[in-house]
């Protein structure tokens, strides 16, 4: 008797699913260590393409793109996390207020409008107000679509924190500000951190919107990579991809661990 939870073949499906998800990444990661110039032939293990990323002919271009990606992601995710934290406080600790439903819809709007439509409308907006596309326009667009991603974990966390903790603090002579700083903020922190991390990855990940609002000459890592692969997949692209993959996995693991550690609210 296997019990009602068991269905034959579901394990196999899950494993197949994982295989499909991981095989391409694994293959690229392995080939990034290929010593050969050809992407089809295995020329033994080598780090030459990683060296090429940092010193090769395209190093300058990718270096600048990486710097842009990183700084944009940093500023956008931090700003978005701050805006989302304030919004979550209002939405979850603000009681019933006029416009709550509308505010909720607004926060989630960037998730509902198709990415390509956001890209088009943002480009049209910048062009109409006469803002030259470049670093600033990318940054503004990223802040906007990062807000709902930062909001989700922050709001979820805040919802799990009962109001009695702040009340207990107030009962024990804390002012409103002290109750926020000493009790609510530390309790919210895991949510804020994972919201920030997710926003960071989302910003780092974005291609479509960035591609529309970046302007000529300005590149982030995804747009630079896209430009390269249009001429065919080269080994140095695989090395860059593997590096970015590593960064993403690192960040998601961090977000996961922070969240799990923070789950313990008795």
């Amino acid at each position: 008797m296997k019990g009602v939870r068991h269905y034959p073949g579901f394990l196999a499906m899950t494993l197949a699913c994982l295989l499909v998800l991981y095989a391409p990444l694994a293959v690229v990661a392995v080939y990034s260590f290929n010593g050969s110039t050809s992407i089809t032939q295995w020329g033994g293990f080598s780090l030459r393409w990683y060296g090429d990323v940092f010193t090769g002919p395209e190093a300058g271009r990718f270096g600048q793109a990486a710097w842009n990606s990183l700084t944009i992601a940093l500023i956008a995710s931090t700003t978005a996390a701050a805006i989302a934290t304030a919004a979550a406080l209002a939405m979850i600790r603000g009681g019933a207020f006029h416009g709550r439903q509308a505010s909720f819809a607004l926060i989630n709007l960037p998730l509902m409008v198709p990415e390509i439509v956001i890209a088009v409308s943002t480009l049209i907006f910048f062009s109409t107000v006469g803002l030259t596309t470049g670093y600033l326009t990318i940054l503004l667009a990223h802040i906007t679509f990062c807000i709902p991603f930062a909001y989700l974990p922050i709001a979820a966390r805040l919802e799990g924190i009962e109001g009695t903790y702040e009340q207990a603090a107030r009962d024990l002579y804390a002012t409103r500000a002290q109750a926020f700083r000493l009790i609510l903020l530390p309790l919210m922190m895991p949510g804020v951190v994972s919201g920030w991390l997710l926003a960071f990855i989302i910003s780092l990940d974005d291609f479509i919107i960035t591609n529309f609002v970046k302007g000529a000459g300005m590149e982030t890592l995804p747009t630079a990579i896209f430009g390269s692969v249009k001429q065919g997949i080269k080994p140095n692209i695989m090395a860059i991809s593997t590096l970015m993959l590593g960064v993403s996995v690192l960040f998601v693991t961090a977000a996961y661990l922070v969240n799990r550690k923070g789950q313990k609210i008795p």
Binding site: E162, T164, Y165, R170, L187, K264, P266
Partner: peptide
Amino acid sequence: PNHRPVNTVFQHYALFPH
């Protein structure tokens, strides 16, 4: 509440978990 010299034992205690 923070200006009242009364204190409360909450139903589910509300001990600060951190």
